[in-house]
Amino acid sequence: MKRMKTTEAVGQVLCHDITQIIPGVTKDAVFRKGHIIREEDIPVLLSVGKDSVYIWENDETMMHENDAAEVLYRMTANEHMHPSDVKEGKIEAIADTEGLLKVDREKLKKVNAFGEMMIATRHGNTVVKKGDKLAGTRIIPLVIKKDKMQEAEKICDGTPILKILPFTVKKAAIITTGNEVYHGRIKDAFTPVIEQKIAEFGAEMMFHEIFDDNDRKITDGCLRAIEAGADIVFCTGGMSVDPDDKTPLAIKNTGAEMISYGSPVLPGAMFLLSYYRKGDKVIPICGLPGCAMYNRRTIFDLVLPRLMAADPVTADELASLGEGGLCLNCKVCTFPNCGFGKGW
């Protein structure tokens, strides 16, 4: 690559895109990499501020920005994704399916700390839909040493930074608890909320029973739901610390592994997560606090996508939700396009 005065570059081959920016009208390349400069191109180049241009000279030790972007894309993207066209040295990863986006943060940080290159992604553990933009990649200079790109590839070691987990949990059980609902004193308003939210992930309720505050009955209901084929069990009601709230005890007595009773999220502090193992199958059993029934967004909205993608949630991950775990209850809710729950 060499630099030449624009007025002397007729017949030469451009080694990079030339971008024209007209505010409110366009931001696009007026000439693409590989364009052979003609006499009539000179005024256009000068009008976009290019008194000099970079002309391609073959150098086996260097890699052009477009080729480097291809390398960065391979380091970033996985199955269920496809690349955009290369434009001005940048390639974007586009989702081919709906699912849960996972980001290997350590690898992403190492690549971005390596110098002269960058990968920008969406937040991990968020829902993406087909056609969504997931990441953008490019190098910072126009050309980069090939051996540096080869060293960068070793960071990923054949395992890309991104992956999409399709939603696989389809059959849900709801165990409604509480004397007031069981005896018909109030209407069950919780179950319709859960049904609506799981339907967004292609799941449906296949088992539903209502119990009074009897922990043995609740335990039995959970186990019968699992025997009936439930992929996930939601228990509603009885999640506070009142002596007559027996749902946490009932879930524990199923034999499920208790991950956490309590979360650093408001609304949602009394959330319970456990996993019941039946052979090779792992079935989440969740205790949902009352806030999930009447608040627009709660811990339930943060955890549900991961449960629907069969992505195991750890106690440490739940603990990390403290930063960003305070919902501001905005008058106009923009979730998930806000900071709520982006801490894990």
Rank of each mutant, 00 (worst) to 15 (best):
D231S: 02
V71K: 11
E209S: 13
D220P: 00
A292E: 06
T219A: 11
H35S: 08
L249H: 14
G115R: 07
E153M: 15
T177E: 03
I232W: 03
P243K: 08
E88N: 15
D311S: 13
K278H: 13
P284A: 08
K146D: 03
I139E: 03
K278R: 14
M206L: 11
E151T: 08
G325K: 03
H82C: 06
C15S: 10
G99A: 02
T61H: 12
P248D: 03
A69R: 03
L223G: 02
D220T: 10
G34Q: 07
V10N: 00
P243Y: 08
K90H: 11
G341C: 06
C286Y: 03
N66D: 14
V86G: 05
I119D: 02
D59R: 15
A120P: 00
E60P: 07
T126M: 05
T219Q: 15
I144Q: 10
N337R: 09
S260W: 06
I226G: 09
I91A: 10
M1L: 12
I164A: 11
R122T: 09
V181L: 05
G339A: 13
G290Q: 04
M1C: 04
S260I: 12
D311M: 10
N58Q: 15
F167S: 05
G229I: 10
P23N: 09
A256G: 10
W56P: 00
M81D: 01
L273F: 01
K102Q: 09
G131Y: 12
E57A: 06
I94Q: 09
D244P: 01
D28R: 07
K217F: 10
G202I: 04
V303I: 15
Y261I: 13
G99T: 07
A203P: 00
K2F: 11
M293S: 04
E39S: 11
L45G: 07
I218R: 12
D59T: 13
A230M: 04
D280Q: 13
D244A: 08
L326E: 13
K197T: 03
I164F: 07
K163V: 00
I139G: 04
D147N: 14
G34M: 08
R216S: 12
K133R: 15
D245L: 10
A173L: 03
I140T: 09
L101A: 01
R138T: 15
P312C: 09
M258F: 08
